[in-house]
């Protein structure tokens, strides 16, 4: 028979045991995490080529889920002057010149394999990571805007005034140029870009993100099975962003 007087003692022993077990196991679990996690200093690998596949058949006019997600993620506040607003991703309405068919697509930095912005940047502030992401080093950008002249997609914005409320992972600075980072801070932590996540939840699932070099990735499989194109194939930039249904 159980002696009721022993209950607090048993409870105490049980909790102490569980606590001890937790203390013993937690470092182990943490160690496993650490082993599996990427090293912060681990360089991007050219074995990966990050890319986006946009399905124009799913993207709809009026839906701005991707744009809003990008603005929230990177604290891209409106300036009150439309022409000066940062536009890392924007919705563009297309009309086919041959049959007047209308389409709506998101347009952002196309993360070209041969990016004109990188070639013209005098200081090397515009650069391409080994995994295909085209980024701007905010510390060496002098604000000459030559990259904006060179970009075939008007995908870059100039910061025309002081910015506030910046996110630590997405620094911005008056007098420098910026553009879509493909949410590098998320991708490096095995997450997808904010626009892709938002399009899947609040939009119409028109964006697929993944490693174009990985034959098993969804984006590669889709790209293999369905026709897609670059926006300016005549420029032979081999863009990391491809469009289906355009």
């Amino acid at each position: 028979m159980t002696n009721p007087e022993n209950k607090p003692r048993r409870r105490f022993l049980g909790r102490t045991g569980a606590g001890t077990a937790l203390l013993a196991l937690a470092p182990g679990v943490r160690l496993v995490d650490l082993v599996l996690a990427k090293d912060e200093d681990e360089p991007a690998s050219d074995e990966t080529r990050w890319g986006l596949l946009v399905d124009a058949n799913r993207c709809t006019t009026g839906c701005r889920a991707c744009v809003s997600a990008c603005e929230d993620e990177h604290a891209l506040a409106k300036t009150g002057r439309n022409r000066l607003d940062p536009q890392w991703i924007r919705k563009v309405e297309l009309v086919d010149e041959s049959n007047d068919r209308s389409l709506s697509i998101p347009l952002m930095c196309q993360h070209c394999e041969d990016p004109p912005c990188v070639e013209v940047c005098p200081t090397g502030a515009s650069f391409k990571r080994a995994d295909g992401m085209v980024l701007v080093d905010k510390h060496t950008c002098i604000g000459c805007r030559y990259c904006m002249m060179a970009c075939p997609f008007n995908a870059r914005s100039f910061v025309h005034e002081e910015v506030t409320g910046q996110k630590s992972y997405s620094p911005r600075g008056k007098g420098t140029v910026e553009s879509c980072t493909l949410c590098v801070h998320r991708v490096d932590n095995d997450r997808t870009p904010a626009c892709v996540e938002s399009c899947a939840v609040d939009g119409h699932g028109a964006l697929a993100f993944g490693d174009l070099n990985d034959a098993e990735s969804t984006v590669s499989k889709t790209a293999r099975s369905q026709p897609h194109r670059e926006l300016r194939p005549d420029l032979a930039l081999n863009t990391g962003v491809r469009y289906r249904g355009v």
Partner: peptide, 25 residues
């Protein structure tokens, strides 16, 4: 007219030689 004229020293010390702009410096 640069966005960051205070970074002139950057323009004089970091060079991307594929840029005709850098050559012009």
């Amino acid at each position: 007219d640069l966005g960051r004229p205070d970074r002139l020293v950057v323009a004089m010390t970091y060079y991307n030689f594929s840029s005709v702009f850098a050559w012009n410096v």
